[in-house]
């Protein structure tokens, strides 16, 4: 049933070897006078998982928040650079930030379901917000997204229960379903499993493998095992700089940079 929801790709991929869904160019960002990201450029491949790793305070979360214009909502935030989604600059004046955030979904570090809404409404609210009124379509999407977030079997009997009645791991998967419901093209995940137990973490990781068939996924994590398990590409950030970027295997097995090597070997962080 997800086929009915997923858009048919308009561009022909065969003409180019590598298709980049999202390109960040020379991003510098600060908040409250702290420079968090220094001139970082990165390219994210379509239907692949890119992990951002680095010690706390290295700017990986701030960088992630620049990719869907969430950063500008932070107090005293500044930002320079460009972010191209399918070649279109998100930060150009012609582009509406609201449309952007819809195309680029986000899952936050701590599960944040809407507490007054039921499980069903949490998933449905993005659709309703964007003008979908047909109950049949909403029902279908809610079921599809909960299935993709591998939560359906656990909640199908109690969709009317409050979202807060779920466990932490279930809540996080509910938030993922909520993000998927508005059919984003890119999914940003900010340490989505850091507040969860190992079993819940494993479920999220398995789901990421499923989701990458349809979405471009960028995941911030401070768990290096997680990065090796889920990602195809990895960027290592340190003190606001992008130190090294490459295939995950290369970054972890054969890092070119000395600091990267120390970090992935667990010598600091």
């Amino acid at each position: 049933m997800m086929e009915t929801m997923t858009k048919i790709p308009l561009k022909d991929n065969s003409t180019e070897d590598v298709k980049y869904k999202l390109i960040a160019e020379n991003i510098s960002a600060s908040y409250d006078g702290i420079i968090a990201v220094k001139n970082v450029s990165m390219k994210f491949r379509d239907r692949a998982v890119t992990a951002l790793i680095g010690p706390s305070g290295c700017g990986k979360t701030t960088f992630l928040r620049c990719l869907n214009r969430m950063h500008e909502l932070t107090k005293n935030a500044t930002l320079t650079g460009r972010v191209l989604l399918d070649g279109e600059d998100l930060y150009s004046n012609k582009v509406d930030p609201i449309i952007n955030r819809r195309k680029i979904g986000m899952v936050f570090q701590k599960p944040n379901p809407f507490p007054t809404m039921s499980i069903y409404d949490n998933v449905a609210c993005g659709l309703k917000l964007n003008g979908v009124k047909d109950k049949k379509i909403i029902d279908e999407v809610v079921e599809g997204c909960l299935k993709m977030a591998s939560l359906w079997d656990e909640v199908k009997e109690k969709l009317k229960n409050p979202g807060m009645s779920l466990s932490g791991g279930q809540q996080q998967r509910l938030c993922i379903a909520r993000a998927l419901a508005i059919q984003p093209e890119v999914l940003l995940m900010d340490e989505p499993a850091s507040a969860l137990d190992p079993i819940a973490t494993q479920k999220i990781e398995e789901m990421i493998q499923e989701l990458k068939k349809e979405y471009t996924i960028i995941i911030v994590t401070h768990n290096m095992q997680q990065a090796t398990r889920v990602s195809d590409y990895t960027g290592f950030m340190y003190l606001g700089d992008l130190v090294e970027f490459g295939e995950t295997k290369q970054i972890f097995e054969n890092p070119r940079n000395e600091i990267t090597a120390k970090y992935v070997q667990g010598q600091f962080g």
Binding site: L73, R101, R102, F114, P115, L129
Partner: peptide
């Protein structure tokens, strides 16, 4: 109201008023 609630609404493509309506007001 925690900012995480507002961000969740922004992420769904909500305008400022919609953020208030679905995230701040019910909370």
């Amino acid at each position: 109201v925690p900012n995480s609630q507002r961000e969740a609404a922004y992420m769904l493509g909500a305008t400022k008023w919609e953020v208030f309506r679905i995230a701040v007001l019910p909370y």
